Structure formats: structure tokens, C-alpha cells
Simulated assay, not measured.
Amino acid sequence: MRNLQASLDHLSIGSPDPGSLASFYANALHLSVAAREGGAFECTGRERRVLIVPGAKGTLNFVALNLPSRQALREFRARLAEEGVAIETAPPSLFGGEAFSIVDPDGNRLVFGHATREDTGDGMKARLQHFAIGTTDIDRALAFYQQVVGLRTSDVVCSDDGRVRTAFLRAGDEHHIIAVFLAPKKSFDHHCYEAGDWALIRDWADHFGTLDIPLDWGPGRHGPGNNLFIMIRDPDRNWLEISAELEVVPDFKPAGKWEHCQKTGNFWGVAYLRS
């Protein structure tokens, strides 16, 4: 099976008050906001795009993955069809007409498309880079993302009995485009923006402080991925991460195995363990 090459282009988040949530993202992430049909809002800025739509609090409506070319998109769709994967029409997104979607075993929707972006907006650097989900059946979820989507495993975190508690999967050379956590229920865990270097973590923390947005976790350093991070909560309690210096993983490197403990989640101290 061919490995998928893709980047995270945008995501769609549900909210009972999409206008207020869009205003928060506009201020917190230096985004411009445009109203869309159906009470939705498009939030766009430098290397980052988020759709806020009417819905229940804390819902991830879909994630949109950008393939490197239209030909790659067509070949990927053909491969999925050949393997009997159910291909569905894409919901309204920031892609063109060739976009399509599939659904993972927990009902999370993945939209695939191709777009050429000119990311020259204002604001500090922080590229939308990965997302994370919680699942009650991590083995089933990983089988889907590895075998159906074609992602590669960079690291897993296991408990003493060998059970996988967390997995980090990549669609290129960056350590992960998705993190999958074993959790008490299906959940949207967080979305992450890669700033690139430690000095920008400081600058983003200062920016959040100016807006009276407290850090919910961090500064810290994750074990898997070796990245520096801070995390905040939006008004709907969704977790938003600013990361820096995420590991670049060569294809020949085997997947790493980490202990399920606080130090794995944060080499510097306290960590949130999902299960």
C-alpha cells in the first residue's frame, strides 16, 4: 500500500455560539472572519484556517487534508474505491469541487482535497499542523488510519501490559498529523499550530497573556515528537496547542515505544493522561 502524503489544511468545529467562538479565534490566532451560509464563520490567517459552524459544543465536524496535487488526489480516491472504502460527498469546505470525504470508525469525517495556498496573512507564525482525537477502541482506530488512510506510525505509548494508549501517525516527514488517544469516550482532543521555534512559543504566550487567556498546560516538552508546547482552552473548552520544533522523522526510522507515564507526556513535569 502506498503511503499517504498530505498536510492538514483546515478543520471545522461545531459550537452553539459560532459567532462568539469565531471572534475568540480571530483575536487569539490573528484571523480574519467572514460569515458563511447557515450561520457558519470562516476564520483565516497566516498558515491557518478554521471553520466554525452551528453545532454542539466540542464537536469536530471534519478535518481537511491537502494532497500535493490533483493527480495525487485522484489516485488516492481510486485506491480507496478499489479497496471498497465508502466514499462520500465532501461537506462545504475550503476545497474545490474534486474534494471527497470518508468517515473513520468513530464517525470522524476526513475531507481530502487539493489547494494551492498563499499564506501571507498578518500575525505570528503558527501553521495548522495536527489534530488529536480520543477513542474507546484504539486498535480499530489505528487499523483504519494505518491500513485505509495510509498513515505511518512514528511513536506509540503503551501501558505495562503492552496495550497501546496513544499513537502518533504521520503523513509526511513531520512526527504526526494526528494523535489518537485511548479515552473514556469518543472526543475531539485538540488541534495544534506549529510555530517553529522556542522564541515564538514565548511570543504566543505573551500574546495570550495580553488577551487574558490563561495557559491551561505548559510550557512543556512532549516525549514523542520532542516538541515544545503550550496549550489554552477556547470558550467551548476545546484545547488549542502552540508547538515548536516538532521532530522530523525519516521513513527508515522504526516506530518508537514509550512508557505510559507523566514524563512521556511532559518531560518537564505534569502531564494530562487521557486514560
Rank of each mutant, 00 (worst) to 15 (best):
residue 174 E to C: 08
residue 262 Q to T: 09
residue 273 L to H: 06
residue 253 K to Y: 01
residue 78 A to N: 11
residue 111 V to G: 00
residue 79 R to L: 05
residue 161 D to W: 06
residue 43 C to D: 11
residue 188 F to E: 01
residue 111 V to C: 07
residue 65 L to D: 07
residue 198 W to Q: 11
residue 88 E to G: 04
residue 49 R to G: 10
residue 81 A to F: 03
residue 85 V to P: 05
residue 27 N to G: 13
residue 97 G to E: 14
residue 151 L to Y: 08
residue 156 V to F: 02
residue 158 C to D: 01
residue 227 N to Q: 15
residue 188 F to N: 01
residue 109 R to C: 05
residue 51 L to I: 15
residue 220 G to Q: 03
residue 51 L to D: 15
residue 62 F to I: 09
residue 271 A to R: 01
residue 152 R to W: 02
residue 35 A to K: 10
residue 1 M to E: 12
residue 170 R to G: 08
residue 155 D to K: 09
residue 165 R to M: 15
residue 264 T to H: 05
residue 9 D to I: 00
residue 45 G to D: 14
residue 229 F to I: 01
residue 99 A to C: 08
residue 225 G to C: 07
residue 216 D to A: 13
residue 73 L to T: 07
residue 193 Y to Q: 01
residue 57 K to M: 05
residue 271 A to H: 00
residue 38 G to A: 10
residue 192 C to N: 09
residue 236 D to P: 05
residue 118 E to N: 15
residue 25 Y to D: 13
residue 57 K to F: 08
residue 104 D to K: 06
residue 60 L to T: 08
residue 8 L to D: 02
residue 259 E to K: 14
residue 103 V to C: 11
residue 111 V to Y: 08
residue 174 E to V: 15
residue 61 N to R: 13
residue 137 D to T: 13
residue 183 A to Q: 09
residue 158 C to G: 01
residue 36 R to W: 00
residue 40 A to T: 11
residue 39 G to Y: 07
residue 45 G to I: 12
residue 24 F to T: 09
residue 156 V to P: 06
residue 168 F to V: 10
residue 45 G to Y: 14
residue 242 I to L: 10
residue 23 S to D: 15
residue 233 R to F: 08
residue 220 G to P: 06
residue 228 L to T: 05
residue 268 W to D: 00
residue 175 H to N: 07
residue 269 G to A: 04
residue 160 D to H: 04
residue 116 T to P: 04
residue 207 H to W: 15
residue 213 I to W: 00
residue 41 F to Y: 15
residue 30 H to Q: 12
residue 153 T to Q: 14
residue 28 A to R: 13
